[in-house]
């Protein structure tokens, strides 16, 4: 939710002028604090993951990644993200269209509800699906009678993942579309375009970078979710273990090097996510700037 705010700024840098410059020692001190904090708090954990993964050499590292259990975990993680992300993508676009383009009572409340999964503890996100679909839950007896399994099977993992990544795309798009306004869409309607044409030709090109940005964040969380998935998984090797759960299992099996090897794959994913994000952020900013310039004319 915070990242969406960043999109409002036309430029995130400003240059100091003589009259507003702090004394040199203040500047040096602040930069030192930031760099130290950065090194200890962010770089060190990241480095540790790779260092521990490679502690037993490249052979052991690769062996940890190339085996059936690891592969099954990777596959399940990919399947989960491949289902959860598109669902939330479509929802995000619909919700952003609704909130950015129309005025209606209860809008703020709706936004709060959309945000809710952000601040619900992952543990509770898992618990609710146990309460619904567990054998003792609301739909439990019916599901059992029809031999449909949700909890402790892939559908439960997918559902929990959809829940925790629910707001990501919507939250990126809403501020972006609000900032962009609706002139182009309204012009298109006047020219006789259909609803889908308006969206496809007037809106989508304007929001594509913001959309991508949301998808990237959504995907990172979908692949990395631990708490919620842990509650609904059942931890069956090769069947219901996602990568983060597999990391925990290896960690509990004295297989520290292997645990960190799999963790390093996830860390790599995080790095790629951040790199893509930085790229996309630049594009979004450029797009916003163009809009501000245009509206300024």
């Amino acid at each position: 939710m915070s990242t969406s705010v960043a999109l409002h700024a036309s430029s995130l840098e400003r240059h100091e002028t003589a009259s507003t410059r702090e004394p040199a020692w203040v500047k040096a001190a602040l930069i030192t604090v930031a760099l130290t904090f950065f090194a200890v708090f962010l770089l060190l954990p990241l480095g540790t993951v790779f260092a521990e993964g490679l502690r037993k050499g490249w052979g052991a590292y690769l062996a940890a990644l190339i085996n059936r259990d690891a592969w099954d975990a990777i596959k399940l993680t990919l399947i989960t993200a491949a289902i959860a992300v598109p669902f939330n993508l479509v929802f995000g676009v619909a919700a952003a269209w609704l909130i950015a383009k129309f005025e209606f009572p209860g809008k703020r409340l709706l936004i709060t509800f959309i945000d809710l999964p952000f601040s619900v503890s992952p543990v509770i996100s898992g618990l609710i699906f146990v309460l619904l679909f567990g054998a003792q839950g609301w739909f439990g007896p019916w599901l059992q009678a029809h031999d449909i399994r949700i909890i402790f099977a892939v559908p439960g993992i997918v559902l929990a993942t959809i829940f925790v990544t629910f707001p990501f795309v919507a939250r990126e798009l809403i501020p972006l579309m609000e900032a962009q306004g609706s002139e182009e869409e309204e012009a298109a309607v006047v020219l006789g375009a259909s609803g889908w044409q308006v969206f496809w030709y007037a809106t989508l090109p304007k929001i594509k970078w913001g959309l991508l940005y949301g998808v990237i964040l959504c995907n990172a969380r979908a692949m990395g979710e631990f708490g919620a998935v842990s509650v609904v998984s059942g931890h069956i090797r090769g069947q219901t273990n996602t990568m983060p759960l597999y990391v925990e299992i290896l960690y509990n099996e004295y297989n520290y090097a292997a645990a960190f090897a799999v963790a390093s794959l996830l860390a790599l994913l995080a790095i790629v996510t951040l790199a893509l994000k930085t790229l996309v952020e630049k594009q979004t900013r450029r797009q916003l700037q163009e809009i501000t310039e245009k509206s300024g004319e």
Binding site: V130, G134, A135, Q136, G137, G140, L143, Q144, R149, I151, F152, G234, H235, I236, R237, G238, Q239, I249, N252
Partner: peptide, 20 residues
């Protein structure tokens, strides 16, 4: 043979909840 490991109580709860 598929294996699932965890704390004993947690595992029992899983079975009660429908872990097959």
């Amino acid at each position: 043979i598929n294996q699932s490991h965890g704390g004993s109580g947690k595992q029992a709860r899983g079975v009660i909840e429908g872990l097959q």
